[in-house]
Design a protein around this nucleic acid. Structure first.
Lengths: 139, 139
DNA sequence: ATCGCTGCAAAAATTTTGCAGGTAA
DNA sequence: TTACCTGCAAAATTTTTGCAGCGAT
């Protein structure tokens, strides 16, 4: 909230509702999911799109892509750069946050080898979760 | 070609044109880029979409997502599972293929820890290439 | 002769934009 | 007050689909 106010941005009903939702829901959410989860009439879909643009530009939110062409957003803690990865079940789509990260020194080696600077990465894991394993094996 | 024929799939003009293009262009291409690169009238946009669906389902082509919401496709060699990653310049969008991969044993540890099976990953690197570094620093 | 494939056009789905009225600061 | 925001509706994009005719096998 204060992070909005600090930059001549207004704290409005729709924005509070969206931020509240993201706070309660610690996993990446798509625009449509956000819209659907909000009480009807609380916020227009167009406003969701506009808000996510804004929040992302302000660094309050981070965008993730799981390879299905749908953008998903996650709230960032103040000062957090949000660099972490997910483990996603390809059957039921449950999303776990993971600590593992691509080794720093390997990344630096790669950057040097190719003459690149300020290299980062996007990394997501996919598999079959415990609950879905019986189902997956059956087929 | 023979990989198509083998499964009662027809080798048609548009499909040859698309496969030719992918063969000549070793980097991931989006549907629109494919359509634009094809000689006018050679293939309808809808056919590009349909072809990429088919080729992907048949495993001739692999889909990559660089986080901008655009699907890109790359031709796979026969028998290749296409598992590799890219280093993309955030300024000029040039794409390099890289050998580095997420360490197998770390991935297995992660899978075990979370009770997941058959875990894989998507990994892409982003940075500023040598040519773009003067430009990037200027701003 | 089949059955699959294609172009064209329409439909569906997704995202962006214009505008006039409302509201936080 | 004065920007900034919002809902609504329209527009712009992107992707999918229906259909009749064509073409590879």
């Amino acid at each position: 909230m204060s992070r909005l106010r600090g930059r001549s941005r207004k704290v409005t009903g729709p924005r509070q509702a969206i931020l509240d939702l993201l706070r309660r829901h610690p996993h990446p959410l798509s625009n449509k999911e956000i819209f659907a989860a909000l009480p009807p009439g609380e916020c227009d879909l167009a406003t969701v799109y506009r808000s996510m643009h804004l929040l992302r530009a302000m660094g309050l939110v981070k965008r993730f892509d799981f390879g299905d062409g749908v953008a998903r957003f996650e709230l960032l803690a103040d000062g957090d750069d949000g660099h972490h990865h997910h483990l996603i079940c390809t059957q039921c789509a449950i999303i776990l946050e993971v600590d593992e990260c691509f080794p720093r020194e390997l990344e630096e080696k790669l950057a040097a080898k190719n003459g690149f600077q300020t290299v980062t990465h996007k990394l997501e894991f996919f598999g079959v979760c415990r609950q879905c394993q019986p189902t997956a094996n059956k087929k």
